[in-house]
Design a protein around this nucleic acid. Sequence first.
DNA 1: GCTAGCACTCTTTTCCTTCGAGTGCTAATT
DNA 2: AATTAGCACTCGAAGGAAAAGAGTGCTAGC
Lengths: 363, 363
Amino acid sequence: MELSERKKKILTAVVEGYIATAEPVGSKALARQIGCSSATIRNEMSELTSMGYLEQPHTSAGRIPSPAGYRLYVNELMEKQKLTEAEARTINEKLARKDEQIEKLMAEVGQLTSSMTQYPAYALTMKPPVAVKRFDFIYVDANTFIVVALLTDNTVKNKLIHLPFSVHQDQITTLSSLFNANFTGVTDREITDSIIRSTERAARDTYGLVAVVASFTMECLAAARTAPMRVAGASQLLSQPEYRDPDKAHALMNFISDGSRLVDDLPPAGMGTDGIRVTIGPENLAEELKDSSVVMASYDAGDGMRGYIGVVGPTRMDYSSVAAKLSYIAAGLSRLLAGTDAPEGLNNKLVLKESDSHEQEGR
Amino acid sequence: MELSERKKKILTAVVEGYIATAEPVGSKALARQIGCSSATIRNEMSELTSMGYLEQPHTSAGRIPSPAGYRLYVNELMEKQKLTEAEARTINEKLARKDEQIEKLMAEVGQLTSSMTQYPAYALTMKPPVAVKRFDFIYVDANTFIVVALLTDNTVKNKLIHLPFSVHQDQITTLSSLFNANFTGVTDREITDSIIRSTERAARDTYGLVAVVASFTMECLAAARTAPMRVAGASQLLSQPEYRDPDKAHALMNFISDGSRLVDDLPPAGMGTDGIRVTIGPENLAEELKDSSVVMASYDAGDGMRGYIGVVGPTRMDYSSVAAKLSYIAAGLSRLLAGTDAPEGLNNKLVLKESDSHEQEGR
DNA sequence: GCTAGCACTCTTTTCCTTCGAGTGCTAATT
DNA sequence: AATTAGCACTCGAAGGAAAAGAGTGCTAGC
């Protein structure tokens, strides 16, 4: 059923009023805004209530939006706010100082998002499974060598291995060719015991060298797949009146501080067309989030990777402003990580934006 | 002035009672414990109050310890608690799964400490300045090479460098010997522009290759010196009655979530003989900590590195139990990172000594 | 030097009243 | 038919007095 223009206006006003003040909004306050008498408003509100878009905390209080009311607001009524000049500049400046380590970049983006929105925020990147592209073994001294693994996502991992016995450079060379033959191009799940066994036989390895390097390899592959997830600004919750009860705040903070729980709750279906997804109160799967809302945006992290940033707040969250900020930050990140135009702030002329056009070399 | 035995007993009982209940403790409750009448206790408490060890929130409440009272308790009266079998086992199990990346290890230790003590916890490692021990350059293809730097603290850093022009293997070799000659054994502060210039001349470098590798080097050295600091379990604060006021909680949480502030407050003088330092309420430097206490323990992280773990809580913190747990965990960490005896739980016979491997995103 | 007793102080809790915002309904108005 | 004015009613919030309770300080006796 389609709502009348006026009902929409009233619903919008109630939602925005409640978002601004955290107090139920009454008919008198609206009368001025809408331009008719409070009695009319009351009638309309009464209908909106019975349609399920508004709620009354108790008989003689104003109305607050129900989850359905918020949903309608988010889907149809809300106008996406624009960022102020200053906000946009802040975001650009922060993103310009791009950090090369994805871990740190995520942490900074989390911080940024949280400080821009005044809500707790998280940031993460999902990665497709990776394999090792090539191994290099650096012989340091008789007891020491370094393994360097170049992964298909172009990250490089390494490990210094110090031995309680000595090896000859030749052994390392053998090891190198065996690993390049047997352990490249496979994901962590494809490394089986039997591959390790056969490599060990081929290397005539009696010291467990192969096992050590193999386990390092699997560690790398597993770690590269795991999403580095950062949560920032959890304490912002405490400035929201709905979390003034320390027990509530505690429960929710526990939940969000544990990144892994949030990840589970990620993208059930798809994102909206603009890359923003809003999940309101009871729509959330996790019990701990039933009274809260989550707004998240996705961005393109390049190389087929997808990333997400999001904030958690009360259902009374300022969806319009948060959505605007998230989508601006997400767009910036996409540009930074996957975009064709080189982001400003890279201060030297060589560098580094290697593409996947990178040919696989034989050996 | 030396306190009488009985005064000590009473002070101890007040401190421990208050720690347990967060309520001022009265004379009646103590009478039973101490074994004399409440009136006697009152007289004694009155004296302890005028000596500055106890305080009265108001005339008709029991007594609570003053900061000086806590201090005396911590220094002289408290018996260091022993861990239960179960607690010790939990800690051992967690530490046994030693993670090779110091960043992650610190995060896990923070988690562990927080969950064992029920207070917010932090963990960090201080490092002495480092230098590069040796460079290796891996030629990948005409447009790509990897720089690998082995640092004096035995961490390895690397970077994949992709060029918009091609280089010959020889150039890389030249670069390698130049860097090994000019950039090894120096700390980040000792790398001056003039060294870079002269290296550039020697390399006949017109593309800025030297500059890129040099800036990578400095990044590594700077990053290796910065203490990776992790804070865990900040939300635990909210379960303490003294932080039921969300504003107080918010202020303190903001403070502790920002690791850098905590670092400033670190070890002014030395640690106690047992490696535990307790800072009570107003003894803290930071304004935000004046109502809180910090207990920290230091551990030996090997290679001349020192590390700290600590917890933040109300002045009414359970010093005895916290100190015991911290020192157990710190001892475990020392053993793990610097100890001569191989910690149990390392499941293969090689691999010892290196602590940190480092990944570098190449984009 | 210790203890019993008692008056006194001060907080906490409880209950009651008042106040006010906001509603729902009815009747009048446009 | 839609809007408005008016009014009785509801229910939480705020205020305040009274009672309860816990603990002290002091005095006097053991």
